[in-house]
Design a protein around this nucleic acid. Structure first.
Length: 208
DNA sequence: AGCACGATTAACT
DNA sequence: GTTAATCGTGCTC
């Protein structure tokens, strides 16, 4: 067994919704200039199959979506709204388009560097959104398609504490305004609620 | 070539 | 709660 408990390809080579749920509590690690930046994943969403009209894969295999169709355990990083990078992990067998969007982490290692990039905001808002965490960890399109199960990957996931069902909230995915049902409301968003916080934090469209 | 829109964020009323 | 910013992608002409 390796010293660190990195998630292997088998972890990602499963049903996308299950992977999204089980990623909660694991640790996202970004190696940057020999430094470790990391945080615990506390929010994730599943995008599964071409029939999922909320997924980029609804348009089929294109230059943009081809990574989703590739083998599991790779990073799918895309640019949106003219400003923001989004980090996903590719899931399921080669040829089937699946990915989990990492929506929020709790900062753990490299807090000073994260602060230098996000410090204009209060700490609790450093990495509580998919674009924010990419800015904090310097995740850009340069990492699109990389194999996060490769030993020399600058981005990977380590196993963390498992989150009990009683601490997990499920709900509709965020930001799918003009997506038809049932995809708009299907509960493929998973959120780990911190027991020290009051459950029920809200966002525009979700059950946060 | 042009258009509408987006798996968002930060700032503002 | 509302809205501007900002540009890649996919689609239509």
């Amino acid at each position: 067994m390796p010293e660190s408990s990195r998630l292997e390809r088998d972890f990602f080579d499963r049903d996308t919704v299950l992977v999204a749920r089980e990623l909660l509590g694991s640790r996202l690690v970004r190696l940057e200039g020999g430094l470790r930046l990391s945080g615990t994943i506390v929010e994730a969403e599943a995008y599964r199959g071409q029939e999922d009209l909320g997924s980029h894969a609804r348009v089929g295999k294109t230059a943009r979506t081809q990574v989703m169709y590739g083998p599991p355990g790779h990073a799918y990083v895309y640019f949106t709204y003219g400003n923001h990078w989004m980090l996903n992990f590719v899931t399921e067998r080669d040829g089937f388009p699946g990915a989990v969007l990492v929506r929020a982490i709790l900062p753990h290692e490299g807090v000073d560097i994260i602060a230098s990039r996000r410090g204009r905001q209060p700490r609790e808002r450093w990495t509580d959104g998919p674009g924010k965490l990419c800015q904090a960890l310097a995740i850009t399109g340069a990492l699109n398609g990389i194999d996060i199960c490769s030993p020399d990957s600058p981005l990977f996931v380590e196993w963390g504490s498992s989150i009990p069902e009683t601490s997990v909230t499920r709900g509709p995915r965020v930001g799918l305004y003009s997506v038809p049902e049932p995809w708009k409301s299907i509960p493929w968003r998973f959120l780990a609620v911190d027991g020290t916080e009051t459950p029920g934090k809200r966002r525009t469209s979700g059950a946060k």
